[in-house]
Amino acid sequence: MNRLRELSHQVMDVYQTLSLEFSTFQKSQSLNCISQCGACCNKADIEVSPLEMLPFALHLFETGLGEQMLEELEMYNGFACKQYQRLSLDGNEGYCGIYDYRPGICRMFGAAGYTTKTGEATLSVCKPIKQALPEKYAQSLISIQKQNTQAIRPPMIAQGRQKLAQLDYELGKRLMPINDALRFVLEKVLTLSYYSSSVDDGVAA
């Protein structure tokens, strides 16, 4: 368990870096997420690595809620993130129920960069931000495409994912639906805890 705890601390350190990097860029371009917008949280295709859910899984374990959450995940029939708290019937308004432990993609998404086939940086902005701030989006896109220098390159989601994945190949490389990723790593934490306890109690060699 000590290895997973240390790995979790490393993930949280990367999270702090990513949150600062992406939020600083978004604020500088006035392309922040819309208040109470949950459009991305309500989508079925959110994918993260089990590593991204490790800090939350350990939090659940250490607060005695791990087995309960695992049972809830097994019974959960929803397609969106189970941790998303809806404020509207259609789910487009809401908030993150685990904000401090939210995975890396949630810290990077909204307004971020990606590299074109020709190696140039361009901007990816979610639909709600585009619709709410069309002029800001257009200005940022033009500025990036016109100057395209390292100084104004937007932070890249691919690079952010790489920073996380390189912490642990086994848990960090594979992407899966967010609820499945939590279930996967929570099972790992609980299984490891069980066998660790068996060893401590002298039941297992």
Rank of each mutant, 00 (worst) to 15 (best):
N92Y: 10
T122M: 05
L31N: 05
M108G: 06
S49F: 00
Q145S: 15
F79V: 13
L73N: 08
C33R: 09
N2F: 10
Q68M: 05
S193T: 14
C33M: 10
A112L: 06
C37N: 06
K117H: 13
S140L: 04
D90E: 09
D201H: 10
T116K: 15
Q16Y: 03
R86G: 06
T149Q: 15
K82S: 06
M176G: 04
N148A: 03
E74H: 12
N92P: 10
L192F: 00
K146D: 13
R5G: 04
R153T: 12
Q29W: 07
C41T: 08
F25V: 01
I142R: 11
M53E: 00
E52T: 09
D90G: 01
N32T: 12
E47C: 01
L133T: 09
A39T: 14
M53H: 07
K43Q: 05
N77V: 11
I157S: 04
Q159K: 14
F79M: 02
E74C: 07
A44H: 02
G91Y: 15
I144C: 01
K188G: 03
Q162R: 13
Q166E: 02
L58Y: 00
Q16W: 07
K27H: 13
K43E: 04
L65N: 13
G66K: 09
A151Q: 11
T17G: 02
S198I: 04
P55E: 01
S197T: 15
V125P: 10
G104Q: 03
D180W: 01
K163Q: 15
G172S: 06
I178D: 01
E74P: 06
K43A: 05
I98Q: 10
E71W: 00
R86A: 04
V189Q: 02
E187D: 07
F25R: 12
Q159V: 15
N32H: 09
Q159M: 09
S35D: 13
G38W: 11
I129T: 08
Q162D: 07
T191A: 14
D45H: 02
A121Y: 05
Q145D: 08
Y95W: 08
I157K: 14
Q159F: 02
P55L: 08
S196I: 12
E52Q: 11
L141R: 14
A138Y: 15
M108P: 11
I98V: 09
A181W: 15
P103N: 09
A158W: 07
L70Y: 01
F79K: 15
K173R: 15
M176A: 03
I157Q: 05
E135V: 01
T149R: 13
G66M: 11
V48G: 12
V189I: 13
C126Y: 00
M1E: 13
F61E: 06
I178M: 03
A151D: 07
Q159P: 01
A121H: 14
S198V: 02
C33F: 02
M53N: 01
A111S: 11
V11I: 09
D168G: 02
Q10D: 03
I157D: 00
N2A: 10
Y95M: 11
S49T: 14
S193Y: 00
D90P: 04
S35K: 12
K136N: 12
F25L: 13
Y195M: 08
C37E: 04
